[in-house]
Design a binder for these strands. Structure first.
Lengths: 230, 230
DNA sequence: CCAGCTTTGTGAACGTGTGCACGAATGCCT
DNA sequence: AGGCATTCGTGCACACGTTCACAAAGCTGG
């Protein structure tokens, strides 16, 4: 056995911030900025400078003391760590309201996640074209996943059919799922699932609003103080 | 001054799980289930039973030892804590792809967040009807927010105009924002912001896929073991 | 070549979240 | 009425995440 390089594990919290840094670094590069300090990046990302440094230190020591980080090089390193050196085709299950919006949203492909296919269980929807991709029947899922080497599936179905969609995706060979349906999916342990739930987000905001209204706390008026909030 | 009831603060992690419990409890009530144990709820929510008990204990002691929780009563308590005893009208900024999908998605109003209005800066879009709501010009934002008592704003614009949308929302009197644009917003400290970023989620999945592929770790085949993943 | 300034990288302290383990309370059965 | 099985509520230990603070490392100007 070769002395396999023990891949350093990056904390979840850091992984979820790297995409934000990456977007900002890209914008800076676009704007001609060649070097950036942890404080500058922190400001733009709405976080603490020490956090930025610690996050980046997990990738290796790519900064220069007294100077900062070279933007282009850092972009390269973050992209590499996130596995964005090549495209990851995705397949969308569900051609309803959300599926249509996702397919129509161009930023998908631009960011390295081209839509390899959209499928729906409703034959009436099959054949229509969304964002340049023809909707196909869900039975064709295995074929799409295999021929296009798809690893990531997006569930954009109603809650009632989400589990079925997940089962089909897993069976077809997908190993990561982005779930927009308001359902807790049951999948094999090896499958990575991330959930985006609109209702949950709104209810969290509701909690804070309610707290604000009923709170006996003398809300300290912070006036015009501004914070960057991710 | 009255001896104001010091409102117990609920941990963020718990607040973000309460909506999930609430949905499940609602489904159970619908199905005729009258009582549920922490273990039962944990199973359905894809979490640990101790966590469920601790989470619920922040609301008060609403369970019965040896029995479990009365579903209907618990639903009431969770709703109360989340401030869902009344509706929270929302205003959507941006009538593009996403704005349309959000407006068309009926589950919005059903869950207590009726769409009080949709606005766009593009005069060409003004007047069109989305999901039963007529698109109005963004200049009417203050009026909508005031007459409809809107506290929550949803940003569904492209990234480039998101900060402007946020500024307008805040100026109009909104105190909570749900941001779908891939931008870090700068707002007064008192404003609660939550972000939903598609690209970030996909890139996190990409990280794990890349890790899976390049990882020198001998991936333990967990076979058919299934986990509920939120 | 050295002094002084800047900014990184990281050890250590602190805070938040998780999960176990067990006492306490309740219902049921005899 | 008493014993037993069940399930909640929570103290405690541990893991994870955040922030501070400072030494190390590099650049610049004289």
């Amino acid at each position: 056995m070769s002395p396999e390089r023990t891949r350093r594990r990056i904390p979840d919290a850091t992984v979820s911030r790297l995409p934000v840094y990456l977007r900002i670094l890209g914008e800076q590069a676009e704007a001609g900025v060649e070097s950036i300090s942890s404080e500058g990046l922190a400001e733009l990302a709405g976080v603490n400078a020490a956090k930025v440094r610690k996050d980046l230190s997990y990738l290796g020591s790519y900064g220069t003391r007294g100077v900062g980080y070279e933007v282009a090089y850092l972009v390269y390193q973050v992209r590499r760590e996130l596995g964005l050196t090549h495209d990851w085709p995705v397949v969308i299950v569900g051609a309803g309201n959300l599926g249509q919006a996702l397919a129509g949203y161009g930023g998908f492909g631009e960011r390295g996640f081209p839509v390899a296919g959209i499928v729906d269980i409703d034959s009436a929807k099959v054949g229509t074209v969304l964002g340049g991709t023809r909707v196909r029947h869900i039975d064709e899922l295995p074929q799409i996943v295999q021929t296009r080497r798809v690893n990531i599936g997006v569930i954009a179905t109603p809650g009632a059919t989400a589990q079925d969609a997940a089962d089909r995706l897993v069976k077809a060979g997908v190993t990561s799922i982005l779930n927009f349906a308001p359902v807790v999916l049951s999948v094999p342990r090896a499958i990575e699932v991330r959930k985006v739930d609109l209702a949950v987000e709104l209810q969290i905001l509701s909690y804070h609003e309610q707290r604000r209204a009923g709170g006996a706390i003398h809300a300290v008026q912070n006036g015009t103080g501004r914070t960057a909030s991710a």
